[in-house]
């Protein structure tokens, strides 16, 4: 690891004053410390946010507000979250291991690097790690890579499960920028597609801090599912994951949410399939058609063609499970 100065500001204001080109913020450290060991990130100044940012959680009539420093475990195990936003709880518990969930913060989960094995292999070119050096995955092994929204410069996928649930639940990200202003970013616009600047995973302004996540009140707490398919049953990234949630009136779908992990550089919403499902009957045939609408938009790479039938099946199954699981 490269030597660095360590700072522990006591409040948000002092934290943003320390921002700079070679400054990085740390909270749980589960991703950043690893990347620093590999010399992928080499900050001169490390700013510890554990005292500066709130870890409070409030669940009220109009929605939930989650302090960015709250641990993934505390969020998933919160009784109000389990009752009102169980999809979020279920998604978090499908990610990482108990140790990592204990350490990782809510804000940090959003900021974990979008990645692929070549991003971590410092002997190979990677546009995300070393802009302009080339993408090893496009020419190399692309089995885990994206199937939608990728570019010629990067085919990596965002690894979070929590973020797939948050994008499905129309969450908002509250940030504090370096001029001291609070801004709200819609979750769906928080992460970005690689385009020709794959070194940037998200739209967080430079030096800004995530202070809280807000989830508006919804009725997705009865019919929901988070389905994750991976190479081993636990502690592995998704090949495909699907967050599905329905609001039903009798057997009619009043509102639907469908999102996926393991498919793109950002947590992906299947908006067309959602619109198709609205006001339709909750039948196997309609679920099959919704899955086909979603999968029609993907363009798998040479090694991940299997993701097309896998995604079709996963969306159908997740929607079916919405009817029976809960």
């Amino acid at each position: 690891m490269k030597p660095f100065e360590y700072h522990k500001p006591q409040n948000k204001k002092n934290a943003i004053e320390l921002a700079g080109k070679t400054t990085m913020y740390i909270s749980g450290g589960t991703n950043l410390v690893d990347l620093m060991k590999k010399h992928i990130h080499e900050p001169d100044k490390l700013v510890d946010l554990t005292e500066a940012i709130s870890s409070e959680i409030t669940v009220e009539k109009n929605g939930a507000r989650i302090g960015a420093m709250l641990s993934n475990t505390a969020l998933a195990e919160n009784e109000n979250i389990k009752t009102d936003y169980p999809l979020l709880s279920k998604a978090i518990l499908k990610g990482a291991s108990p140790q990592i969930r204990n350490m990782a913060s809510t804000g940090g989960n959003l900021l974990q690097r979008t990645r692929c094995p070549y991003f971590y292999d410092t002997t190979m070119p990677c546009n995300k790690r070393n802009p302009g050096s080339g993408c090893s995955a496009i020419k190399g092994f692309s089995r885990m890579s994206a199937v939608i929204g990728y570019s010629n410069h990067c085919v990596a996928v965002h690894p979070s499960d929590m973020c797939v649930a948050l994008v499905a639940l129309d969450a908002k990200v509250e940030i504090l920028n370096t001029t001291g202003e609070t801004e709200i970013i819609d979750f769906i616009n928080f992460h970005r597609l690689p385009g020709d600047t794959p070194q940037k995973d998200n739209n967080l302004p430079e030096g800004a801090i995530i202070t809280a996540i807000e989830i508006p009140r919804n009725s997705f707490n009865s019919n929901f599912e988070y389905l994750k398919i991976r190479d081993r049953e636990s502690y592995a990234f998704a090949l495909i994951s699907v967050a599905a949630a329905l609001v039903l009136s009798g057997n009619t779908i009043k509102d639907a949410r469908l999102a996926s992990g393991g498919v793109a550089h950002k947590p992906w919403r299947w908006s067309k399939a959602e619109s198709f499902l609205k006001n339709k009957e909750a039948t196997e045939e309609n679920f099959r058609q919704a899955a086909e609408i979603a999968v029609a938009d993907i363009t798998p790479l040479k090694d991940n063609k299997f993701k097309a039938p896998m995604l079709t099946g996963a969306i159908q199954q997740a929607l079916l499970n919405c009817l029976s699981n809960n």
Partner: peptide, 13 residues
């Protein structure tokens, strides 16, 4: 009292 990974924890924190 909570389980953590000591390899990813900076001592200064």
């Amino acid at each position: 009292g909570d389980r953590n990974l000591s390899c990813l924890t900076l001592a200064v924190m």
